[in-house]
Design a protein around this nucleic acid. Structure first.
Lengths: 115, 115
DNA sequence: TTGACATGAAACCAAAAGGTTTCGTATTAT
DNA sequence: ATAATACGAAACCTTTTGGTTTCATGTCAA
């Protein structure tokens, strides 16, 4: 069990990769509080519907959107959960916004310079 | 004034793009509290020094690392400030982790379904 | 039914990305 | 001086990425 035949959402090819494209970030934005079909989404971009469809596929693979069939439409909605990974990654660097640690770091550095 | 001749750090080709590559994320990690030269960094990856050098260049263009010449070495250090853009972008989706808003959203949706 | 709409799959293409090897140039060590 | 080290630039190659056009299928409307 638990082999490669599970279902969809098995791919998950990296949230970082998924959000690296500006078009895809805009798509997420558009879906923030609306569930929209591909054709409507396409209206916001200077590219073909098929291209948008492929971007949505990438977002879906990363778990960032889910689709729901409604009549002949396929409505996409935002699924923000995977963004938590990003959030966690970023949190690692939070200490850098902490001034006390920054000062300590600089202090240490000033001791071990000179080649 | 303010044309394309300013200086370096003018490129800034997107933090999202810069951190989309796992190697580059690892590089940032390695530089968290160390200032390191290219050769040392290369030891951590299964690729040539030149490849690592190119990754560092991309990070530098995004403002995520800065270099300092020390002898014949070129020591790289983390420059986390551009990560704030990511942080801001993510913050936009913070409301999704707020359960009250999530419930409200679902309530609204249940009213406007049926095609 | 018959036609229009909504959409993904497939085949294809050009450009960008991620690597490699080779070369030139500072800088340090002998 | 000479050799070794540290490194980026350039040229080149292969794979991935972002697009396009064409086609097949499912669904709704007349």
């Amino acid at each position: 069990m638990s082999n490669a035949n599970s279902k969809a959402a098995d791919a998950k090819p990296d949230v970082f990769q998924a959000i690296s494209d500006p078009t895809r970030r805009s798509l997420l934005q558009l879906l923030v509080d609306q569930e929209l079909p591909v054709t409507t989404l396409t209206g916001h971009f200077p590219m073909s519907r098929t291209a948008v469809s492929k971007h949505l596929r990438i977002l879906a693979d990363a778990g960032l959107v889910k689709e729901r069939k409604v009549g002949r439409e396929r409505r996409y909605r935002l699924e923000p959960e995977p963004l938590l990974e990003l959030k966690r990654w970023l949190a690692y660097y939070d200490r850098y916004w902490d001034n006390r640690l920054l000062l300590l770091k600089q202090l240490v550095e000033s001791d071990e310079d000179e080649p």
